[in-house]
């Protein structure tokens, strides 16, 4: 496999009566796995999910500009969000590169509440898109949605 993003996947192994709880295993995108094939429509849909995640990264930037306190508290969440974007771009054939341009304006109202709403909306978007895919891309979108739900909880 060349140029394909890899990710580890832990699997809970439930052993027998003398067993133990252990985490192991891995998987990756595959050029030969039919489950990882995408249609033209799915390529477009993945590009849309990339755009949604880019908007969330921008929302973090805007919220942090409006609230230095929030920036100090939630820098790790923004970093995770950027990591998600990188993985999503790698999973999206033909996805555009990183967006450039002026940073978004500070959102009106409470930056934390605005950011939380953006996180929730992006989580819902990835969760809704997830069942439209199969294989590693379904796994990735589902995981991203879950990760963002965790962020939403923390921003509450």
């Amino acid at each position: 496999m060349t140029g394909a993003p890899e990710f580890s996947r832990r699997t809970l192994l439930v052993a027998a009566s003398a067993g133990t709880l252990a985490l192991t295993g891995c998987t990756s995108f595959s050029d030969s796995d039919p489950a990882d094939e995408v249609t033209a429509a799915q390529v477009d849909q993945l590009a849309g999910q990339v755009t949604a995640q880019e908007a969330l990264v921008a929302a973090y930037t805007a919220a942090f500009a409006a609230s230095p306190e929030l920036a100090a508290q939630a820098a790790g969440l923004a970093e995770q969000c950027s990591d998600q974007l990188a993985r999503l771009r790698a999973a999206a054939p033909g996805a555009p590169g990183p967006a450039t341009g002026t940073p978004p304006a500070a959102p009106p109202g409470d930056p934390r509440a605005t950011l939380r709403a953006a996180v929730a909306a992006t989580a819902a978007s990835h969760a809704a898109a997830c069942p439209d895919f199969s294989g590693a891309r379904a796994a990735l979108l589902g995981s991203l949605a879950a990760g963002l739900r965790g962020q939403e909880r923390l921003l509450a």
Binding site: R9, L12, L23, T27, A35, P131, S134, A136, A138, G142
Partner: peptide
């Protein structure tokens, strides 16, 4: 551990309804 198991389901499911449950 449960999360890892359900991500595996997402990666292997052929039924849309199964993926909806998994996510």
């Amino acid at each position: 551990g449960v999360a890892a198991a359900w991500v595996t389901v997402l990666g292997r499911a052929v039924e849309r309804a199964t993926r909806e449950l998994a996510v």
